[in-house]
Nucleic acid binder design. Structure first.
Lengths: 210, 210
DNA sequence: ACCCATTGAATGATCATTCAATCAATGGCT
DNA sequence: AGCCATTGATTGAATGATCATTCAATGGGT
């Protein structure tokens, strides 16, 4: 049973309920996968009756889309607010993005399971891809811009966009391995490897593990 | 309609039928995702009647497991046979593994969609993870062994297993990005980025793009 | 004529979705 | 304060669609 806010009241505002149902959907997907989450399993986890999720969301599809949207927004918040801290140079900002990517609130077993459940469906659902596309593109641009600064400082022959794409792929790849083989891949290990990569590519700007 | 072998005959041996049904399952997952593939959709793509898949496989779950097993075996074949070529030194073997990973027969839109469909379910299905675990661990060991040789030659401070894990994650991450954003991530681009990584890490052993 | 692969209609289970009925809160009225 | 009336949230049983699974009947191959 997921309780975003404990209320003794039987009723709550639509906003609260929607959020509660989305949280329950994340919990359900994390526990049973997408194919195993039903409107009933969501309702049970939310502590609500069977029909309510359908009342607040037009359909199960709409609920899943909204869930992905919430997840993506939360993810975006995580890195974009960190970048707004003053006095961060380019390497520090990249470190911030990495810290965000592997922060416990984002990168935990339940949420990783949900992310990859959506990725598994995204291949043939344009609506899912639309949700992640703009956010992913935005971060890729930001990170590429940061690497551009660094590369110009050292005069490296590397391509900023290429390095940014490699970093993104490292994020996704370590996420997948953490999900599949949690005994062998930990958050700390992933970060250590990524910093090794950055240190060998830009020795003057990154140290092996801050 | 998938036809592994064109036969005018109405009947075929169990082996042929099983393979035909597995191929149809891959096609169906690639087209409709796991949640959209039904015993009926598989039968239709195989050009067989509705009940046959259930006759040859105990259940839908069993069929999906067998499908993943076939996919994993095909993948393993791809890299392990390449490594058996004589006169390959460690860097050449790593190049061979990379070529295998991004070979058209493995790394195409349909198969990537199937892989990630399974990854999405693997989080809460031990039976799926069991299938990939041993194969992934095997390749990780092989690749780590190869990097061990290279690292000893140059006396680099890098950890062979760590580099191997990074490479595996690059594979998975680029695969995911190729699936999600095929316009921005191509097989050639992924390989180029990976060779950039290897060149900066081991300049004496890898060139930017062979 | 026999064997065995194959068919596809029948069965029952699971689920999303709907909606009329129910219930709690709120505010106005005495 | 006590008492409705109104509003709007919530319930859960009913409905119909979809699907995995079964199996008796079919018919091709040998």
């Amino acid at each position: 049973m997921i309780e975003t806010k404990q209320k003794k009241s039987r009723t709550a505002s639509p906003e609260v309920r929607k959020r509660q149902i989305v949280d329950a959907t994340i919990a359900s997907i994390g526990k049973h996968g997408i194919s195993g989450t039903t409107m009933a399993s969501v309702a049970r986890l939310a502590g609500l009756s069977a029909g309510l999720a359908n009342f607040y969301f037009k359909s199960k599809d709409a609920l899943l889309e909204e869930t992905l949207r919430c997840l993506a927004m939360e993810h975006r918040e995580q890195w974009s607010t960190r970048l707004q801290a003053p006095d961060l140079d380019a390497p520090a900002k990249i470190v911030a993005v990495i810290d965000a990517q592997f922060h416990t609130s984002i990168c935990n077993r339940k949420k990783l399971a949900v992310w990859f459940a959506f990725f598994g469906e995204a291949a043939y659902r344009k609506s899912y891809r639309r949700i992640t596309t703009s956010i992913d593109a935005e971060r890729l641009d930001v990170v590429a811009g940061l690497f551009d600064k660094i590369i110009k400082e050292v005069g490296s022959p590397l391509d900023p966009k290429g390095v940014a794409r490699t970093l993104e792929s490292l994020f996704d790849g370590f996420w997948l391995n953490m999900l599949m083989y949690p005994d062998q891949f930990s958050r700390e290990m992933a970060k250590a490897q990524i910093f090794d990569y950055l240190h060998t590519s830009f020795p003057r700007h990154f140290t092996p593990m801050p």
